[in-house]
């Protein structure tokens, strides 16, 4: 039987997680193909929650599908779309469906997505959501009411190693740990020296496992977009040049090489406890990158 993410994190092995993006609609064929392709090659499959504030098939439903197919799902939960009642209800639901891992996130702002006129929630923040999971584990909800049956989760959170204002980000990082986060998956990192700097700080929290976020570059345009629009992500100019050198339409070839190189270095030098590999919409390239990085 496949080991759980919790077991993988405890094993001391280099842990690999990747990501499944639910479709916008009910056509799940391509996604199921990705799940089947990846489920035995990684220790956990994150399922995004209305990613980038774009309404999609729910994370919980897809986690259930992954579970059915023998995979190890990680339920991503943002605070944007549900109040504390809905979040707790979904945590109970996830638990009875056999989902054992949850990644607690703030969530992108509504304005960044495809329902700009919607009312955003943020009744809880990510720290409070982590704390809510831990409270549900005690057999009570966060209103202090008794539950008939508690939950149990492996709880994760996110961190931004390359944030430009580190002080306030590390404050949040510490509070997430204090609230009960067991593992972190970081925002995409491209500068290994900055990652090491962050890890030097993070290593003082020995009980916490940290997986470095690796986002595969597919083109020069994507790299420039990340630099211009995504907070806490910086693709260095020399990597952009490297992607450019592949020639038009071939950027992904170099992107895969860069990802594999970084994974190899992180593993070899023991920088982090594992990686979280993101290949948004191109999940089929994940096995190849892992192979190139010398994993499995």
């Amino acid at each position: 039987m496949k080991r759980t993410l919790k077991e993988a994190l405890k094993s001391g092995d280099f842990v690999i997680t990747t990501e499944i993006g639910p479709p916008k609609g009910t056509n799940i064929e391509k996604m199921l193909h990705h799940i089947d392709l990846l489920k035995d090659k990684v220790d956990g499959l994150n399922v995004t929650d209305n990613q980038s504030s774009v309404m999609r098939l729910s994370s919980l439903a897809v986690c259930h599908l992954i579970k059915d197919r023998g995979g190890e799902p990680i339920l991503q939960m943002t605070c944007r779309d549900r109040n504390r009642m809905a979040l707790q209800a979904d945590l109970l639901s996830a638990y009875v469906l056999g989902v054992e891992n949850v990644l607690c996130l703030t969530g992108d702002h509504i304005m960044l997505g495809d329902h700009k006129g919607a009312r955003q929630v943020f009744d809880l923040d990510s720290v409070q959501l982590i704390a809510a999971v831990r409270t549900l584990e005690t057999g009570k909800d966060i209103g202090g009411n008794e539950l008939d049956g508690a939950v149990s989760f492996c709880v994760g959170a996110t961190a931004t190693p390359e944030a430009d204002r580190m002080g306030s980000q590390l404050l949040k990082f510490r509070k997430k740990i204090k609230a009960g986060a067991e593992f972190f998956q970081t925002q995409a990192v491209y500068d290994m020296d900055k990652l090491k700097e962050f890890m030097q700080y993070a290593r003082q929290f020995e009980e916490v496992k940290i997986l470095a976020g690796i986002l595969v570059l597919t083109s020069v345009g994507m790299a420039r977009y990340l630099n211009a629009n995504v907070a806490g992500v910086t693709v260095p100019e020399e990597l952009i040049e490297e992607v450019k050198s592949a020639g038009k339409g071939q950027g992904i070839v170099k992107g895969k090489e860069i990802a594999a190189r970084h994974i190899k270095q992180i593993k070899k030098e023991g920088i982090c406890d594992g990686i979280h590999l993101m290949a948004i919409g191109k999940e089929e390239i994940v096995p190849e990158i892992l192979e190139m990085a010398g994993i499995k």
């Binding site: 605070c79 944007r80 703030t106 969530g107 992108d108 702002h109 304005m111 960044l112 955003q120 943020f122 923040d125 990510s126 720290v127 409070q128 996110t158 931004t160 944030a163 430009d164 204002r165 306030s168 980000q169 404050l171 949040k172 509070k175 925002q187 907070a231 806490g232």
Partner: peptide, 28 residues
Amino acid sequence: SKSLLNGPCGGSQDGKCEVNPEADCGWQ
């Protein structure tokens, strides 16, 4: 922008908010 009580989100950059780069990040 998200009325967060325990610190900034990951969308804070250069002391500005992910919703509007001209608006200050309240948490910063």
